[in-house]
Amino acid sequence: MIELTEKIRDIAKKLLKDGTVDVFIGYKKGSVPMMNEPVLIRNPDEADLLYWDSNCGLNLCNYLTGRTDRIGILATGCNSRSIVTHIIENQIRRDQLYIVGIPCTGMIDHRAVNRAVGHREITDITESDITFTVTGKGFQETFNKADYLQGNCKVCRHRNPVEYDEMIGEPVEEQKGIEPYSDVKNIEKMSCDDKNAFFRRLIDKCIRCYACRNACPLCYCPTCFVDESRPQWVGKSIDPTDTMTFHLLRAFHCAGRCTDCGACERVCPMGISMRQFTRKLNRDAEELFSWQAGLSLTERPPLDTYRSDDYNDFIK
């Protein structure tokens, strides 16, 4: 991990010095362990702030929207797919970007680690290849990284960036034999009332802080539908109906665009698994339109084009 960090710093310095980019977007160590923050580096001297380990779960693509300068950006598999989505949605031009690809072996689920240490305060985390060690007051525990991956990383099929100008390190092997949508299938088997109850319980804790929306690279509308007041599409209360409407509409807005980067779940202060909404749409996009978001710069997304063989079984 540390050698990758060194490489990122070197590349960022080089790019900023020779003027290839005006700004470099990467991660820095957060003020709290396991919470690395995005950082925008403008000056080569600041490049030593950059950091890389398995706690870089936020999506850097968020910081690209509508920028007019030249940008260097660090991209894992899902980040690079979000960048591609941004490019085909005309939020950024490809020639503005210098994409530094980085192979990713998955991000650590900080909630699972906190549960594993009984919610004692963790003050430091160090990482080797396949294990990581957390330290706190009076304890130190080592875990296997594979057991504590984020839910989306466990079922990830695109660990290597799909689009990049330069690659740091060797591409990692993609995970094989994973069943990407087993949880969705389980829900599909439930009865109508059970599904309703499942999703009601799921969003029961939601406090409508919109952290999921803010962390999402796809949510770049200048005014979000939840903030519109004429007409007001959705109430601002935590009434279950309002919450459900918010989550449903948020998910619909991500249909065919979501790369399952897991940023929404990672930032949720209440630990809600809102990926259950978007994943159903991802699965539909894949099964009905053979589409996975952000894999190609030339193809248009399914909701953007008309084909005479489009799925239309639901129309009478």
């Binding site: 539908f225 007409p231 599409w233 959705v234 109906t241 409407t245 449903l248 509409l249």
Partner: peptide, 10 residues
């Protein structure tokens, strides 16, 4: 749009 449909149900 989905908003209108959900609005109707709401």
């Amino acid at each position: 749009s989905p908003k209108l449909i959900l609005g109707a149900f709401r």
